[in-house]
């Protein structure tokens, strides 16, 4: 591991004053420490933010507010989250392991890095890790890679389950710098790889995530997260579906849908949402509405199964949600 300077500020103002290019904020450490050991991340400065007062899970008229240092396990176990935003609790519960969920923070979860094996291996070419070096996954082992939002420079999958549920629920993320605070919709927070896959989001150098807000909605309480993977637990998604429906007298008034495991960022499916609205909440509707879910997909050598898997995952999630009532 490369040497770095280490500070432990006690306030957000103090933390962002340290911020800048080459700074990494340390919360749970489950991504950062791992990738520093692999020399994939080589910050000059690590700022331990665990002493900042960024705690709390609160519900008010506007919705659900989760401060950045809340741990995955605590949010997953929170009664309000489980009752009013079940897909958030489910996405968290299906992530990682008990130990990792006790460590990893909500802010950090949104910034976790791809599990692409080439990104994690400094002996191979990777445009995300080393811009301009090439993409080893395109002609390599790419079973777990993305089919949506990819480019000729990068096909790495975004790994977060939580972010998929949050994007479906139109979450906003609160950011702070020494210049002040701003709020960005989470969907717009993530950027597509294009020709600059090393840029994954709109964070400015030294900018810190302080929390998220999930708006109130008629559909959040009627929501479900379904994750399909190679083994039953402790594995990343091959495909996942975050589905939320507002159903009145058997008719879908509005839907919110996003997919994971298939995109270079959490993948909102507004076309599926539109196809569901105004239709009866039944299997026929679900089958036809997800028909175009994988439009624009660019399957690779080893993941041609993903468009069909995505559609089936969405249908199963919708049917399961509807059967639960």
């Amino acid at each position: 591991m490369r040497a770095y300077s280490f500070t432990q500020p006690r306030s957000v103002a103090e933390a962002v004053a340290h911020g800048g290019a080459g700074t990494a904020f340390l919360a749970g450490g489950t991504t950062l420490v791992d990738l520093m050991k692999l020399n994939v991340m080589t910050p000059d400065q690590v700022v331990d933010i665990n002493r900042l007062p960024l705690h709390g899970i609160t519900l008010d008229r506007d919705g659900l507010h989760i401060a950045a240092l809340e741990r995955m396990s605590d949010v997953a176990a929170d009664r309000t989250v489980r009752r009013d935003y079940p897909m958030i609790a489910q996405a968290l519960q299906l992530s990682a392991s008990g130990q990792l969920r006790n460590m990893a923070s909500i802010g950090g979860n949104l910034l976790q890095r791809t599990r692409c094996g080439y990104f994690r291996d400094v002996t191979t070419a990777c445009n995300k890790r080393e811009p301009g070096s090439g993409c080893s996954a395109l002609a390599g082992i790419n079973r777990i890679h993305a089919i949506l939002g990819t480019s000729d420079d990068c096909v790495a999958t975004h790994p977060s389950d939580l972010a998929v549920a949050l994007v479906a629920l139109e979450t906003v993320v609160h950011l702070a710098t020494a210049q002040g605070a701003r709020t960005v919709p989470l969907d717009a927070f993530y950027t597509l790889p294009g020709t600059t896959p090393h840029v994954e989001n709109v964070l400015r150098p030294g900018e810190l995530i302080t929390g998220i807000s999930v708006p109130r909605s008629p559909w959040a309480a009627h929501s479900l997260y379904l994750k399909i993977r190679d083994r039953q637990s402790y594995e990343f998604a091959l495909a996942s579906a975050a589905v939320a429906l507002d159903v009145h007298r058997g008719i879908i008034r509005q839907a919110r849908i996003a997919a994971g495991g298939v995109g270079t960022k959490p993948w909102r499916l507004t076309s599926v949402e539109r196809a569901l609205a105004g239709r009866p909440a039944n299997a026929d509707t679900f089958e036809s509405a997800v028909g175009n879910a994988a439009d624009g997909a660019r399957p690779l050598t080893h993941n041609a199964f993903k468009p069909a898997l995505l559609r089936r995952t969405l249908i199963r999630a919708l049917i399961t949600l509807q059967e639960r009532g």
Partner: peptide
């Protein structure tokens, strides 16, 4: 999971915990 310990009563992975953060 072989390195699992408890920090402040919670199970965590000691291999991904920097000692400096346990003060």
């Amino acid at each position: 999971g072989a390195c699992t310990v408890h920090v402040d009563g919670r199970r965590v992975l000691s291999c991904l915990t920097l000692a400096a953060t346990t003060d």
